[in-house]
Computed example of a mutant assay.
Amino acid sequence: MARAVRRCLTAALLVLLLEAAGAEQTDTQVIRLGGKLSMTPPLPEEMKPLFNMWWKHGRDLVCEWDKDGVEIYIKYKGRSQLDHLTARLEIDNMTTEDNGVYTLFLNNNEQPWKTVVTVVRDVTKPSIQISPLKCSYLSDSCILTCEGDVTEVGEVTFRWKEDGGAWERQGQKMDITKLHHSKVENFFCQMSNQISDRQSEGVLNPLYKAPLNVLGLVLGVLAVLVAAAVGVVVLWKKKLLCFASKKAGGAAERKADEEDDLKPKP
């Protein structure tokens, strides 16, 4: 009985090992639009020596090698290279049409190693939109939205920061309240995908109200008072000079009249 159980367990273990050996292996690559895809799969010893190989993208043939040499098919011609010694395939100028699963066949046998490829664009510079439009420091709360073109950029994440603080992951929208954010002057958002990230310009917090600058106010009032005092002094000096000038002119006229009276009359 014990031997029978051991034989069953051994057989079951062997089946599991065989299934694991043939289990599908998936590699994932994210490629920048216009970039290069490079795939170098493992070559099982039991497949050697090789007498043919081909790569498929979904249902389409990419390339093929046999005793007659390498053939690259139309869609990939001029931008693909196959090394038949290592089975490495390289494709340049990748586009979103190249997204999908790539499969290798060796000696007429499909291999468990596959590559899932996603071609994405760099993210664009985002901007921050505030709602509602009438939101101001008199409001109790507002909503900030990080917006940007997400066409063909793949999976996107959004993060936020306040003034010069650290980036925090909060999603595309951020709720702000007077209770928690009234002292923040500026908000920034960042949009990222698997190959790039861009930061928005800072946007002024609509709930922020600049504190009253008492020192600046006092200095401003003093400056106005000093300017007024200087103006008064200048005006007063001008009036004194004008009065002195008129007084001197009157004295000169009186002296001239007196001299004329003292002259002998003909």
Rank of each mutant, 00 (worst) to 15 (best):
C8N: 07
V101Q: 15
P44D: 12
F243A: 10
V116I: 11
L104E: 03
A229T: 12
T124S: 09
N205W: 07
E45I: 00
L262W: 13
T95W: 07
I31A: 04
F105E: 11
R6W: 05
D175Q: 12
V153H: 01
K56W: 00
G34Q: 08
V184T: 14
P211C: 06
T151L: 14
N107M: 10
V230A: 13
K239R: 13
G250R: 14
T95Q: 13
L43H: 02
P264V: 08
R59N: 12
L215R: 09
L18Q: 13
S139R: 11
E155R: 11
T157P: 01
Q172P: 01
Q111H: 14
P211Q: 10
L37Y: 06
S200W: 09
T145C: 07
T95D: 10
P41M: 12
Q29T: 05
G69V: 01
H180L: 15
C8P: 02
N99V: 02
E71H: 08
G164K: 10
T95F: 08
Q172V: 03
E147R: 07
G164C: 09
K77A: 13
S192P: 02
S139E: 15
L14H: 03
E253F: 00
T95P: 03
T177I: 06
A248P: 00
P42M: 04
L241P: 02
T28Y: 07
V214R: 15
A252W: 00
V15E: 14
I31W: 00
N109W: 13
G58I: 04
K238G: 10
K114N: 06
L33P: 01
P44Y: 01
M53A: 13
T124N: 07
L104F: 05
K56V: 00
